[in-house]
Each structure stands twice: as structure tokens, then as C-alpha cells.
Design a protein around this nucleic acid. Sequence first.
DNA 1: TTGACGTGGCTAACGTTGTTAGCCTACGGT
DNA 2: ACCGTAGGCTAACAACGTTAGCCACGTCAA
Lengths: 181, 181
Amino acid sequence: MNRREQMIDVAERILEREGPDAVTMRRVADELRIQAPSLYKHISGKAEIETALQQRALERLGAALAAAGSDLATLAAAYRRWALAHPRLYELSARHSLDRSRLASGVEAAAAAPLLEITGGNVAAARALWGVAHGLVDLELANRFPPDADLDAAWEHAVSAFAIYCTPRPDGAALVERGSG
Amino acid sequence: MNRREQMIDVAERILEREGPDAVTMRRVADELRIQAPSLYKHISGKAEIETALQQRALERLGAALAAAGSDLATLAAAYRRWALAHPRLYELSARHSLDRSRLASGVEAAAAAPLLEITGGNVAAARALWGVAHGLVDLELANRFPPDADLDAAWEHAVSAFAIYCTPRPDGAALVERGSG
DNA sequence: TTGACGTGGCTAACGTTGTTAGCCTACGGT
DNA sequence: ACCGTAGGCTAACAACGTTAGCCACGTCAA
């Protein structure tokens, strides 16, 4: 098994169990029964670990969304559920500015596909949709809502607003232009 | 003038000009022509500086929103404009988990007021609205959209979706229940 | 006037972080 | 038999946040 992958596995485990501050080069090395400088034989630096974890997060979130189907409500629920189940990983992937050169191609597109289906191919509307989902999750993870806030209700409103906006009406007209790019 | 406030002023300036990594205790001390340990005569630690900056950000963003009026489109534009004008400050205030005990009371409520006006007092819907705004801004600041993405269009869709959802229709009916809390 | 004391500087130092330099050993191929 | 590379190791560095402890100055009471 690849040492590099072992390192990233270990880093992920530490991240989820003990938070980002616990993810130290020495700590990762310890877990591998190795000295910290030896890590650099396999990796350029800590940033590379973080990029790798970011990529993992995108892939898995994308997979979770793809598995959730194409209904807006269930898709939103899947987004939130995945983020709350892997909060540190989600935070890392969202906060750390994206380095597209290192990112495997297609990962982004795959993650975006389910959203695009809902907006009928309208990518600007899909981005707005992504915005709500990410925003609500991010604020929740950052403790920005009062402890007694009913976030289920907030999600329902968000979903309703976009459902009304994106769903074609019986007469065939749609509020959002479908198929536009 | 208060040394504590000087410290926070300096920290803010460094943050906006050179990014979060440049905000060091020693750096702040240097700017004040003082040695780093002396900072601790006025402040408990770096966390207190960050909390203070977070509070500043919330107050100013709140003020910017209040000044923008109560129209959804202009409000959204004001939110985005402020965040893009003070990206580091916004990031700091959004990422750093909120310590309500230290936060001046009323700051949160004041920032939320303009949103509540739009949703007719429905706080869950206001949170959804906050979600889109924060989400779109946060993704933009984190470089998560492709460089050529038309973010103006994304914002327009978001605004349209919520405008339709929140505006009472001519017959007096509204999609969102107004006055609920 | 003198003494006590709080305010706000200072230097020295500690522990932890990411990272580099340089050495050594084992193994695989020519 | 040799040589190079892969992958460990120790020692060390600079920078970080922070603590301990010393000292000068101003203020106020006796």
C-alpha cells in the first residue's frame, strides 16, 4: 500500500476525530510510526495533504448527491446530511481555496451534475442553488445560528423558493430559462 | 487612545492588506513599536483580537445592510459589495465560530433586521435568505467558481427566486407565511 | 516627603509548528 | 561486485503564541 495514501488516510481520521488543529505533521508521522521529516519523502508539504483531503471531500459529496436522485428536496437533504456527517472534512474542502491545477478533472463537473439537472441546465441558477446549500451548511457548522434556531424550517423555505422558481409550470412556461448556459 | 483599540486597528489593517497569515502577535507589536509580550498587558490572547475583529465585521456589515434599504435586490447587492470590499474581514467573521458571550448584544439582531423586513417577519425564511447571500459570497471568496463564471447572473437568479417567494401576490396571498416566527 | 502600588513596558525563555539538511541502510538492476 | 535510489533517521532552524519575571514611572495615602 502506498505510503502517501496512508498519510492521507491517517490525516483524515485525525481531522474528523480531533479537529483541524490536531492534524500535525508530527502527529501524522507518529500514527505511521515514523519520524516527521520522513513524510517529506512522499509529499511536498502539509498543503498537499490538505489538497488531497479537499479532493476526497468533493468526490464523496458528489457521490452522495448523485446517489440522492434528482429531486430538489432530497438532494438538499443529502447535501446537508453529508456535510453534518463529515463536518471537518466539509469545512476543510470549503474554506481552503481551490487549487484547480491539482484537482482531478471531472470531479467538479460530476458534483455539479445533479444541481444542473434540477435547473434544467441553467448553470447560473445551479450556482445560486449551490449557494443556498453551502451557505446554510456553512453557517450551521460555524455556529452562526442561535442554538434554538429551527434550521429544518430554514431549509424548507430555501427548497420551496427554488422549487417554485425552477419547476416548469403546467402551461410549459418556466420562471428560469431552461437549457441556458 | 486605548492601546487595546490600537492593537485591533493595526490587526485589521494587516489582515486586509496582507492576509490572515500576516496577522501575528509580533507583527502587531512591531507596528505599535512595542515587544510582543507587552500586548498581553492589554489583551488575553490572539483569540480576543479575532473576536473583536469579528464583532467589527458584523457591526459594519449590519450597518451597510441597514443603509441599503429594504429592497431585496439592493440588499443582496449591498451584502455582496461589502463582503468583496472587505474579504479577509468577512472570512474571519464567517469562519471563526461565533462566541456569543463576548459579542455585544443587539449586534446580531440589528444585522438581521433588514432581512426580516423582506420576509415579512418570518425568521426561518430570513435565515434561508441569509444562507444564499453568505453561500454565494463565501464560494466566491474561496475561489470555488470557475474563473469565467458569471456570478452576477447567479445572484440574479437567487434574488429572483426569493423575491417571487417572499413578495405577496396581488390577491393578498403570499407563498411564505408572513409574521410567523 | 515617603512609601505602596498599579500600569505598561522590557528580556529571556518555553513548547510547538512546518520544514530543511545531511547521513545511513537496504535492496534491485547492470 | 558495484552503484543508485527509496526511505528511513537525527539535528536543527525559523516563526509562532505565550509565560515568567524584572524594572521604571506615575498616582495617591499617610
